[in-house]
Amino acid sequence: MTALKIDLVSDIACPWCAIGYARLQQALQTLPDLKVKLEWHAFELNPDKNAPQEPILPALSRKYGRSEDEMRAAQANMMDIASELGLNFEKMQQRFTCNTFDAHRLVKWAATEDKATAMKLALFDAYFGKAKDVSDSEVLAECASKSGLDQAEAKRILAGDDYAKDVSEDIANYQQAGISSVPAFIINQKYLISGAQEPEQLAQALKQITSESPS
């Protein structure tokens, strides 16, 4: 059985990151002989912790220089894609911008308990499915609990600076490596797959990489 290491650089506030992970899972289902070790890495779409939160549609309109109607249509398209993948994006147009640094800290902690993916999925569901504020400590602790982690320990971590250095180093390292958009899939620390590719394209790329890699 061939083994691959996938470093997945993503942000909780990035809908394509949730879609990209779901598509990766679909791709892997077609590659039963491939064993994958996945590690999540932090990226921030909204790195300013002091920036005021604002409704997502006008924020995206300003960021991309497109009308709110255009952004609403783009979001609706993502909601359709997410639904087909079994993701809950029901309230993605009702969410507000927010900083995700503390959420990334909890993902780092969850990784020490082998629950990073569960934590990441709980955060995606809270933000896109329920329009919850994933910078809020109560919301984050609730996501930790839903991931099978201790809620009191999550609150203790959030009250301090545990894993802050890990997250900061993650962000800096991948920025220095030239990662400027997410999701980014780095395979065996050598190959880069950018964006939320279709499952068939991902599977083909992974097969190609596998053929070039020692078992």
Rank of each mutant, 00 (worst) to 15 (best):
T2P: 15
L4F: 09
I6K: 08
D7K: 03
L8C: 01
L8V: 03
S10V: 15
D11H: 04
D11N: 13
A13P: 03
P15I: 01
C17K: 06
C17R: 01
I19W: 04
I19P: 02
Q29A: 12
D33Y: 01
K37Q: 10
E39G: 04
H41V: 02
E44F: 03
L45S: 04
N46L: 15
N50Y: 01
A51P: 00
L57F: 01
R62F: 03
Y64H: 12
Y64A: 05
Y64N: 10
S67K: 12
M71R: 09
A73T: 14
A74M: 14
A74P: 00
D80I: 11
S83N: 13
L85V: 01
L87R: 00
M92T: 04
Q93K: 15
Q93E: 13
D102Y: 11
R105A: 12
L106S: 05
V107M: 14
K108G: 05
K108D: 06
A110M: 13
A111H: 09
K115E: 01
K115W: 02
T117A: 05
L123Q: 14
L123M: 12
A126L: 10
F128Y: 13
F128W: 13
K130D: 07
S137G: 02
S147C: 07
D150M: 05
Q151H: 02
A152P: 04
K155R: 15
G160D: 13
D162M: 13
K165M: 05
E169N: 13
A172E: 12
N173Q: 08
Y174R: 09
Q175A: 14
S181M: 01
P183H: 03
A184N: 09
F185Y: 07
F185A: 04
I186C: 02
I187P: 03
A196R: 06
Q197D: 14
L202T: 11
A203I: 13
A203Y: 10
L206C: 11
Q208P: 00
S211E: 15
S213M: 13
P214G: 07
S215N: 11
